[in-house]
Design a protein around this nucleic acid. Structure first.
Length: 478
RNA sequence: GGGGCUAUUUUCUAACUUGGAUCAGGAUUCGGCGUUCGGGACGCCGAGGUUGGGGUUCAAAUCCCCAUAGCCCCA
């Protein structure tokens, strides 16, 4: 139910505390007795449902079918691809007994489903006519993190979709990996209004078992970079150990080329951190469970007429997600604060004075600016305000992101940028041991991604002075 | 990976330092009734609490240990 007080921590000064308050007071998250396993309350789950609806429809346009594979993966399957197991084994949770009976083979709770799915794909792919095979599943996964949990961003159990596709050729796999990456970027920018960077992960940071990993990345207001989503080309790294083969047109046996790609509930946390302020949550209209809340200003004599007018307005605005807060037990002022904390994009105030003048007061959550709108124009005005807000939130966030990025071609500039909590674009050789060095020496910074839009470096690697493979972003990250 | 801090009800807290009878006090919240309502209204009545386990003690919310959870800082 409603909390008694607003947000008491400032985003600028106490970012973590501020975030902890937001997610609880906006009724997004509830803690549970299990560390790192949190409740997605209806208000955050509804955001997820909107993103799901968008992605699901886009997957289907691309010929992807939904299916569901088991939660439990036998150890023998999980360990089939060597790099993959090594990457995941430290954080796999295991089921070892049923009641009091030990299991003959322990079962992993899926950290990701490559292995269980590909064991089945082997049976489904025989001919080039069976390709491409494109399957997605919406599910939960468990990765037993030992770092402390950050709600949405890093939890032991989280929700996601994982797409797993097979192609006859590498070209097709490459094209799809890029296509899905762009779709993910679109989801961030057009739904969450979060600006992102697309690129390719370093050898060290790529997915365990992948040929290469493409990623969508962004920077949070506290100076930490965060991986938004990834799209992996697995090459034939899994099709070989799992024996996923087909006969091609020339009657030759071939291993399939595979991709896997995922989008998680982490995205919700990124959107919250990006846009919210000291009054609470700020949600982009595209994903807000409620896009406009109508608050009647109630006086005893005009109460019925005011509420009737609000109900009428809701009907007029049927194309939007509108809620009328006609609760008797709270004052208008209380409701203003409450809905601001919940991040509802627009507030429509209707009082007797407004009704006399045939107008409404409309307030935008991101700018907190109020405008008077004639009732006859309301539908159009709301539509405009929502569209503007969606657009301007992205623009504003992009300006902030750009202010957090610098380019460095010398060691000194690089170091300075990192100290200033920037994301630094620098020439890098791409070698894992060189990256390991940088990480050790510079307080745990990682390569983020080699952005697609960067130039070819002329200067050598920022650290080892060998030939640079590409410009990479480096930063502290989640 | 290392270090630190915290835990009282829906929530925020008082009592803890110096263990005891004050009935664990207040506010908020929740339920009821009434007056209110243009930026977190108010009155009356009612509901609700010491995180879990162990120890010290005649006596534990208070001291000690363990577990669990949360938060912060460093790597």
């Amino acid at each position: 139910m409603a909390e008694d007080k607003g947000i008491t921590a400032a985003k600028e000064d106490e970012f973590s505390e501020w975030y902890t308050q937001i997610i609880q007071k906006a009724e997004l998250i509830e803690y549970t007795p299990v560390s790192g396993c949190l409740v997605f309350r209806p208000y955050s789950y509804e955001i997820w449902e909107r993103v799901q609806a968008f992605l699901d429809q886009e997957f289907k346009k691309r010929g992807v079918k939904n299916a569901y594979f088991p939660l439990l993966i036998p150890e023998s399957l999980l360990t089939k691809e060597k790099e993959h197991v090594e990457g995941f084994s430290p954080e796999v949770a295991w089921v070892t007994q049923a009641g009091n009976t030990p299991l003959s083979e322990r079962l992993a709770i899926r950290p990701t489903s490559e292995t269980i799915m590909y064991d089945t794909y082997r049976k489904w792919v025989q001919s080039h006519r069976d390709l491409p095979l494109k399957i997605n599943q919406w599910c939960n996964v468990v990765r037993w993190e030992f770092k402390h949990a950050v709600p949405f961003l890093r939890t032991r159990e989280f929700l996601w979709q994982e797409g797993h596709t097979c192609f006859a050729t590498k070209d097709e796999a490459d094209a799809e990996a890029h296509d899905i990456l762009k779709l993910y970027a679109q989801a961030y920018e057009e739904l969450y209004a979060v600006p992102v960077i697309m690129g390719r992960k370093s050898e060290k940071e790529k997915f365990a078992g992948a040929l290469y990993t493409l990623s969508v990345e962004t920077m949070l207001p506290n100076g930490k970079a965060i991986q938004c989503s990834t799209s992996h080309c697995l090459g034939q790294n899994f099709s070989k150990p799992f024996g996923i083969q087909f006969l091609d047109q020339k009657e030759q046996k071939q291993h399939v080329w595979q991709n896997s790609w995922g989008f998680t509930t982490r995205s919700i946390g990124i959107a919250i951190m990006t846009h919210s302020d000291d009054k609470g949550l700020v949600l982009a209209p595209a994903i807000a469970p409620i896009q406009a809340v109508v608050v009647p200003i109630i006086f005893e004599k005009t109460k019925d007429a005011t509420i009737a007018a609000c109900t009428e307005i809701k009907k007029q605005l049927a194309e939007f997600r509108v809620h009328v807060d006609a609760r008797d037990e709270y004052t208008a002022g209380w409701k203003f604060n409450y809905w601001e904390m919940k991040g509802v994009p627009l507030r429509i105030e209707i009082g007797p004075k407004d009704l006399e003048k045939k107008q409404a007061v409309v307030m935008r959550r991101d700018t907190l600016k109020k405008t008077m709108v004639p009732l006859e124009n309301l539908q159009h005005a709301i539509s405009q305000e929502l569209a503007n807000m969606q657009k301007e939130m992205l623009v504003k966030a992009r300006q902030r992101l750009q202010s957090q990025i610098i380019t460095a071609e010398t060691k000194e500039a690089f170091q300075k940028g990192i100290e200033e909590k920037k994301m630094v674009l620098a020439p890098f050789c791409g070698k894992p041991d060189c990256e390991e060095f940088i990480k050790e020496k510079m307080g745990g910074i990682k390569s983020i991604t080699a952005p697609f839009d960067a130039k070819t470096p002329e200067k050598p690697c920022i650290h080892c002075n060998n030939k640079a493979e590409a410009f990479y972003y480096f930063a502290k990250s989640y």
